[in-house]
């Protein structure tokens, strides 16, 4: 196995119970992702891209097959071990930002560090650094309700990046943004990918996002139909 490979997926099948029957969302996926990739799972609704992202993020378990993330088999993880993996190694960015509305920008970004038990001075330093990456140091004490959509998503990126995770999973991160904000967000993530060597995997069908990807994994009806490298990392 290539030492750079951080995600290895072999014959992944995922089924969901629907009534008395089952729905198969992923039908034998085999692929891998290397450290530092800026890749996307691309496909229409129902193609299985979010399901695959969830399994990579240990938010869901495979029905069959093997998924290894950072040398850990996702299928064998207990809930506690899965939470530990997410806490220490993974970052998530959501379509609708999902900031904690009653907390300030600083506190939102600080939250993952609280879970990792960093002390106050370390947290402050790391939060301000993360806000600097996304250009929001002046908004540290603002509440999410005082920010624009683009700014909210930049806070979400800072929150995902503050602990410097190995892997960031972003599910439709630009779906609620206009074109200008989308490009700003994507440039920010691309910059972080280059500077910190953080692996980004997107689930998207947004052309703007697709245009930034270095690797495009196309899914349709639970299968990988095309795996395309656009740029060398």
């Amino acid at each position: 196995m290539n030492n750079d490979i951080i995600i290895n997926i072999q014959q992944l099948v995922k089924r969901f119970p629907i009534g008395k029957g089952e729905f198969t969302a992923l039908k034998g996926i085999t692929t891998s992702f290397r450290k530092g990739e800026f890749a996307g799972l691309i496909g229409p609704s129902g193609s299985g891209k979010t399901t695959l992202l969830n399994i990579i993020g240990s938010l869901d378990m495979p029905s069959e097959g093997e998924v290894t993330v950072l040398d850990v088999s996702v299928g064998s993880l207990t809930a506690k071990q899965a939470a530990l993996l997410r806490k220490e190694k993974l970052g998530f960015i959501f379509q609708s930002y999902n900031l904690l509305q009653v907390h300030t920008v600083f506190e939102n970004v600080e939250f993952p560090l609280l879970l990792l038990h960093y002390n106050a001075s370390e947290r402050k330093k790391m939060v301000m650094e993360a806000l600097d990456w996304v250009g929001l140091t002046d908004k540290a004490q603002s509440k999410p309700s005082q920010l624009s959509g683009g700014e909210c998503q930049r806070v979400a990126i800072a929150r995902a990046m503050v602990k410097k995770p190995v892997l960031v999973l972003a599910d439709e991160p630009t779906a609620n943004l206009d074109a200008t904000n989308s490009h700003t967000i994507l440039r920010t993530m691309e910059k972080l990918n280059k500077e910190l060597q953080t692996t980004f995997i997107f689930a998207t069908h947004d052309e703007k996002v697709i245009s930034y990807l270095h690797r495009k994994v196309f899914l349709d009806d639970g299968y990988i139909v095309k795996d395309e490298w656009v740029k060398n990392d």
């Binding site: 938010l59 939470a83 993996l85 993974l90 998530f92 904690l100 879970l115």
Partner: peptide, 16 residues
């Protein structure tokens, strides 16, 4: 539930 989802995604356990 949205907030719980974020917290779980960030690595909190359901117990926590």
């Amino acid at each position: 539930y949205g907030e719980f989802g974020v917290r779980l995604a960030m690595g909190e356990t359901k117990h926590h």
